[in-house]
Computed example of a mutant assay.
Amino acid sequence: MRVLLVEDDAALSLGVTRALEREGWQVDCLGDGRQAMAPGLINLYELAVLDLGLPGADGMTVLRAWRSAGAKQPVLLLTARDELSDRVAGLNAGADDYLVKPFDLPELIARLRALKRRAEGRVSETLSVGDLKMDLSHRELSYMGEAVYLSPREFALTEMLMQRVGRVVSKDAIVARLSSWEADFSENSVEVYVHRLRKRLGELGLAIRTVRGFGYVLECCAQPCVPSEPGDGPA
């Protein structure tokens, strides 16, 4: 999951970023409200953590700008104020949840997971396709009870495909999910990762089918799959 963190406290921002990265999420940080309102910026993310007390433009102004522009991403507010009126104002402005500072990082992570589940229409932290199971809470993948080890980006790509099993996942969506401001991740990179996963998951009875011009689809096979050469080309 790609998260936008808007927080001007450098120490807090670093702590939250490290905690979320340990969960396997990609985090981009901003410390100024005006930067966060850049046109289309919020649409690069699946979820946002937004501090209310920001320089440039306060968090409430940023949140209203996002919602006015049609952004539907879940937003969790961070606030140093525990007044009921502030919480109500934030929720009425379009926030999905809030945390009062100081807070414990495990609670923040739990709330973000809940927002992600809600946005995806899920009630569980487990994904299953055939005999392949993914535990999103512990970032673990297993096949018939045996651990399957993948790199962080391979794991993130597998998560995307499992979440949309039987449906096309576009290259653009994969690039947006697996890239960050500090990394150069292109459509060619997507093809490399899909090629690796196609071989690995094929051994587990799953196929990644290329839908040319659109993207990729994860499908179950009756038996271990051998990737065909035509399926390895660009989508």
Results as ranks from 00 to 15, higher is better:
residue 166 G to I: 00
residue 182 E to I: 04
residue 193 Y to V: 12
residue 195 H to D: 09
residue 189 S to P: 01
residue 169 V to Y: 07
residue 182 E to G: 09
residue 187 E to W: 09
residue 185 F to W: 01
residue 170 S to V: 04
residue 165 V to P: 07
residue 179 S to W: 01
residue 177 R to E: 15
residue 165 V to M: 15
residue 179 S to Q: 13
residue 190 V to E: 05
residue 188 N to V: 12
residue 173 A to T: 07
residue 181 W to K: 15
residue 188 N to Y: 11
residue 191 E to W: 13
residue 196 R to P: 07
residue 166 G to D: 03
residue 192 V to A: 11
residue 178 L to D: 02
residue 175 V to W: 08
residue 167 R to D: 14
residue 193 Y to M: 10
residue 191 E to T: 12
residue 168 V to Q: 00
residue 186 S to C: 15
residue 176 A to G: 08
residue 173 A to Q: 12
residue 185 F to K: 00
residue 193 Y to Q: 06
residue 184 D to V: 14
residue 173 A to Y: 03
residue 178 L to E: 06
residue 170 S to C: 07
residue 187 E to S: 11
residue 191 E to N: 14
residue 177 R to I: 07
residue 171 K to R: 15
residue 172 D to Q: 12
residue 183 A to C: 06
residue 196 R to S: 08
residue 174 I to P: 02
residue 174 I to S: 03
residue 170 S to T: 09
residue 194 V to P: 07
residue 195 H to Q: 13
residue 175 V to T: 08
residue 179 S to L: 07
residue 182 E to A: 07
residue 167 R to A: 07
residue 186 S to Q: 10
residue 185 F to Q: 05
residue 182 E to H: 02
residue 185 F to D: 00
residue 186 S to E: 13
residue 195 H to M: 08
residue 190 V to T: 00
residue 191 E to R: 15
residue 196 R to Y: 04
residue 174 I to V: 06
residue 195 H to I: 03
residue 192 V to P: 12
residue 180 S to Y: 01
residue 193 Y to S: 13
residue 190 V to S: 02
residue 186 S to P: 08
residue 172 D to K: 09
residue 183 A to Q: 10
residue 188 N to W: 06
residue 179 S to Y: 05
residue 187 E to P: 04
residue 176 A to C: 14
residue 169 V to R: 02
residue 175 V to M: 08
residue 179 S to R: 06
residue 185 F to L: 01
residue 171 K to H: 09
residue 165 V to Q: 12
residue 195 H to K: 06
residue 183 A to V: 05
residue 169 V to W: 14
residue 181 W to S: 14
residue 184 D to G: 06
residue 184 D to P: 03
residue 177 R to T: 08
residue 165 V to T: 10
residue 173 A to E: 10
residue 176 A to S: 12
residue 170 S to A: 07
residue 185 F to N: 00
residue 195 H to A: 04
residue 188 N to K: 11
residue 195 H to R: 05
residue 194 V to A: 12
residue 189 S to R: 02
residue 190 V to I: 13
residue 183 A to Y: 01
residue 191 E to Q: 11
residue 186 S to Y: 11
residue 177 R to F: 13
residue 181 W to H: 08
residue 176 A to W: 07
residue 170 S to Q: 05
residue 181 W to V: 15
residue 183 A to G: 03
residue 182 E to D: 01
residue 188 N to G: 10
residue 173 A to C: 00
residue 167 R to H: 12
residue 177 R to C: 09
residue 185 F to E: 02
residue 165 V to R: 15
residue 181 W to L: 15
residue 181 W to E: 14
residue 186 S to V: 10
residue 169 V to Q: 05
residue 180 S to D: 01
residue 171 K to G: 15
residue 181 W to Q: 15
residue 189 S to E: 01
residue 182 E to W: 04
residue 174 I to R: 01
residue 168 V to R: 03
residue 168 V to A: 00
residue 189 S to G: 01
residue 174 I to G: 00
residue 187 E to C: 12
residue 194 V to D: 02
residue 193 Y to G: 02
residue 190 V to D: 02
residue 173 A to N: 10
residue 196 R to E: 10
residue 187 E to K: 11
residue 175 V to S: 13
residue 175 V to P: 10
residue 195 H to T: 09
residue 182 E to L: 09
residue 176 A to Q: 13
residue 171 K to C: 15
residue 166 G to T: 03
residue 195 H to P: 02
residue 170 S to Y: 03
residue 171 K to M: 11
residue 192 V to N: 14
residue 184 D to F: 04
residue 177 R to P: 07
